[in-house]
């Protein structure tokens, strides 16, 4: 029973040819891209609406009606500070919406996953493809939302782009969010998925340093320490460093922690994916 698998079996029809994992991987990406294009009319509003309303209310309505927000720093600084947080939250949301939610369905009543994992590539690569496709959608949504966060506020946003940081933080944040999406998608089922938003995503966003820089939490020391477990904090602070002159967490902390989260979520997500697929 030691038939070598590297040589084509003599009895296999010539037409069932050796495909190679990369070809199958690329085709899976192609399928996801096609579905995204087809569903653009759903993708756009779902991507744009939440950040648009957030930016609109906080940085347009509030200053216009004289509602003080953002502390003593002033409304203009608040708009600048918020840009980074909005991008980070959009990416995190997209990771969950584009990876976790479809996966919960595919593992749930549709069982579509049973067919997807029969594509001729190692099981782990099917999971990796989900992360890559999700990360690309995260990146796309960040590109769509960035102009909104920049131009909607009533007061001018002061950008100061640090390209090397931006070009490294953005992909890292996208991959991390997609990997988190994979992990959530394999941990939750259709019955428990409302909990994902209620008890996981909402605390992550409210305490993700979207609306305030991490450094300003100094006056609530326990909270400043507590939020360090939240991956969104490092994304927000990373984007703050990449896009704005607002003071931010040291990049020496941001990069390794983001990288660590990415590796951990990917490894755990791929493991739970495998365990869910195989019995």
């Amino acid at each position: 029973m030691t038939a070598p698998a590297t040589t084509a079996p003599p009895d296999a029809p010539a037409t069932a040819r050796h495909v190679g994992s990369w070809v199958a991987f690329r085709a899976l990406l192609l399928r996801d891209g096609y579905v995204l294009r087809k569903n653009l009319r759903e993708f756009l509003p779902r991507t744009i609406l939440q950040p648009l309303l957030l930016v609109f209310v906080f940085t347009y309505v509030f200053p216009k009606i004289g509602q003080g927000i953002g502390g003593t720093a002033g409304a203009a600084d608040f708009s600048t500070m918020l840009v980074a947080g909005v991008l980070a939250s959009v990416i995190l949301f997209q990771g969950i919406q584009s990876v976790a939610l479809p996966m919960v369905q595919e593992f749930g009543f549709t069982r579509e996953i049973e067919d997807r994992v029969l594509a001729p590539l190692p099981l782990e690569l099917v999971g990796v493809e989900k992360i890559v496709a999700g990360a690309l959608q995260c990146l796309l949504s960040a590109l769509i939302v960035f102009p909104i966060a920049t131009f909607v506020p009533a007061t001018p946003v002061h950008l100061r782009l640090d390209w090397p940081v931006l070009l490294t933080i953005a992909p890292l944040a996208c991959v991390m969010s997609a990997a988190l999406g994979l992990l959530f998608g394999t941990l939750f089922d259709p019955r428990t998925v409302p909990l994902l938003f209620g008890i996981v995503v909402i605390p992550l966003t409210f305490l993700g340093c979207i609306y305030f820089p991490w450094a300003q939490l100094e006056s609530i020391r326990w909270l400043q320490v507590l939020v360090l477990v939240n991956p969104l904090v490092y994304m927000s602070e990373g984007f703050r460093a990449a896009l704005t002159p607002v003071p931010h967490m040291r990049l020496l902390a941001v990069y390794p922690v983001l990288l660590g989260f990415t590796v951990a979520f990917s490894a755990l997500g791929l493991r739970t994916f495998r365990n869910r697929v195989l019995s």
Binding site: M1, A5, A16, R17, H18, A119, P120
Partner: peptide
């Protein structure tokens, strides 16, 4: 074994068959 391929040693190859 399917088509001479050990399904659990080489699942990706087996899936082609």
């Amino acid at each position: 074994h399917v088509g001479g391929v050990d399904v659990w040693a080489h699942p990706a190859r087996a899936k082609e068959l």
